[in-house]
Design a protein around this nucleic acid. Structure first.
Lengths: 351, 351
DNA sequence: CTTCGTAACTTAACCGATAAAGTAGGCCGT
DNA sequence: ACGGCCTACTTTATCGGTTAAGTTACGAAG
């Protein structure tokens, strides 16, 4: 049982050629019904499993998608990757996962490696560092399908599926203001990355709508992780005035703000309202839930795969699609534990 | 620029054979220094990248590892996958990720698919459902290296890297008792999975050490996710007495307990101490951090890859290794934000 | 009765590499 | 001068499939 069964082994057993076997297994019409049945039966008996590597080489299709994300231990990306994996599996594809760690050079290396591995397409969320456009040019030159999700490089000519960051941020901050908050700080991302720019724009737009000024010392750009949130809030504590609410560009940044408060100004925990763009399942159950902008992670993952597969399997490489998904605001009013049915549903789909 | 450069293209340009090119690029000694240099130079000029699919087929090595986990949007698994990916990349391997969703049938399908894709080895954390042993027998028969991490199937004869669940649980509960808690409930996992059994054993051992009885209605077995924690705690609320502490078998289960408290008995939030086995980065920053048993996720991921690669690249398939890692208890005393250096470190390694 | 078409396979080529075996030419020693 | 031995390549085979181009035999049509 040590050796693996090949097409030719089946062929020899039946005194036919491997081509016949190959065709029979793939139900090609120029093999008789009887022969097809016979071959399939014998293949099953002998425990044949096709060598996907060989198949990839000759068919020029690997049925593998390359996925590149900046981070994985992050509620948003973990959820999206999960959805991507689920959808890919359903469609008969596997995923090769690579993490860029927010590092453009590493992102480039990963993409090159995935290209060398002959993935059928790429799903990429770019790192926050200035991207190396040459790789993407290369991808384009070889007509490799690619779909950006969440974080894209605009003008690169690829399809993308993103979230309406500006509108989501706008609604959220608008809501804060309507609740009576006036002194709203914003721990922002970096300007090079779209989500950083857009969320900030939405924030400023909401302030403008209510004729509130943008107080520069309270808008601190810099990054997307916990420590940025931590440092930024410490910096805010050093200004003269204190905000009554903080809008964090990401969930991890929001966590950093909590960390800073806990260590440097625990009394603020109950007075300063925190709002984050993005949530973790964590927040749903925590005793101290905060406002957050919920991103449709599952839909994003599923549709990203759908768009990519359309480009892979579709004929023409039509114009790049640009899908924009809307967020929903999780407020104290509509706050509820995630539906148990959703959990059951995702399990059922998988099974 | 549309077509990809192959070995033979370089060969024709230089009027030599593709074999010479192949050998030159791989620095084989029977090619002259001059020729090697020339070939490499031209290859670079022409923008050659090897077709890894073809290489896999002929060399019978894919340099891809298959990773199967029950879940991904889960702080523990996300962290371990991250570490696995990082280490694999460093060693020149890619990872094919598959999620079983705690479903044994899906787990089986994934493994079969990964085998067909000719991964060089497998890293598996089994689902909580009764596993389908036949796949593992198949893996064994074809001498495919496999390492279990965190959740294993004992007696399957494969190497494993796990966490000392019993001791970790024991120390943690022992600590609770020393802090004065006496009425400690345990929301347990299922009995079929080792982590469920072991953590419960550690819990009972600690109680025994202090001559405390195990109050059966407070030991509720069932699962590892948020809703199990939620339901179990609601059930506890229906018993006559109330515990003064709750030991949750996983971090998500602990979250579920919080959710239940928040909805059904918010006054308990400040009185009932929660202890979870496993933590999320979340907990480090949250204003309401609880006790937790920290698992060495990064070490687990790194070492799992090391062990697997040793089996892949090593000659003999010696006896299966069984590595057990120790946990550390994160208490109110030693509680601190994660080191900024660690973050920097992981970024440096990646770059 | 010849011709043509078609069903059902078989042969030959190819995918892009690697591995093993073969072969010139140069240098050496005797 | 001749066999032996490197050196540096080249030839040939192989990995396990898929695709395109034959090849038979048989039945129907003209």
């Amino acid at each position: 049982m040590a050796k693996r069964v090949r097409l030719i082994d089946i062929a020899e057993r039946l005194n036919i050629t491997k081509v016949t076997v190959s065709k029979a297994l793939r139900d090609q019409p120029d093999i008789s019904k009887d022969m097809r049945a016979l071959v399939k039966k014998t293949a099953a008996e002998m425990g044949y499993t096709p060598n996907l590597v060989a198949r990839s080489l000759s068919s020029q299709r690997s049925h593998i998608l390359g996925v590149v994300v900046p981070k994985i231990a992050h509620p948003f990306f973990a959820a999206v990757i999960d959805a991507i994996q689920e959808e890919a599996t359903k469609k008969g594809y596997g995923i090769l996962l690579a993490v860029s760690n927010e590092n453009a050079a590493l992102e480039r290396q990963h993409i090159e490696r995935l290209l060398a591995m002959r993935v059928d397409g790429l799903l990429v969320s770019v790192s926050k560092q200035q991207p190396d456009l040459s790789v993407y040019q290369q991808v384009r030159d070889m007509h490799m399908p690619l779909v950006f999700f969440d974080r894209q490089i605009e003008d690169a000519g690829f399809s993308s599926i993103t979230i309406d960051d500006r509108l989501g941020a706008f609604h959220a901050v608008d809501h804060l203001i309507q609740q009576g908050y006036r002194k709203i700080a914003h721990i922002a991302g970096t300007h090079d990355v779209a989500i950083g720019r857009e969320r900030r724009a939405g924030y400023e737009e909401a302030l403008r709508k209510h004729d509130l000024p943008v107080f520069e010392p309270w808008v601190i750009a810099g990054g997307f992780d916990e420590w940025h949130g931590y440092d930024a809030f410490v910096q805010i504590l050093h200004t003269d005035a204190l905000p009554d609410a903080v809008f964090a560009v990401t969930f991890p940044v929001g966590l950093g703000v909590y960390g800073a408060m806990r260590e440097h100004a625990p009394d603020l925990l109950d007075t300063v309202q925190i709002l984050t763009f993005g949530d973790g399942e964590v927040n749903a159950f925590y005793p101290y839930p905060h406002l957050c902008v919920r991103q449709p992670t599952q839909e994003m993952g599923h549709r990203a795969v759908e768009i990519l597969l359309a480009e892979i399997e579709g004929t023409a490489d039509g114009p790049a699609q640009r899908v924009v998904l809307q967020t929903s605001l999780v407020t104290a009013q509509n706050y509820r534990l995630p539906s148990r049915d959703e959990a059951a549903e995702s399990l059922r789909l998988a099974g």
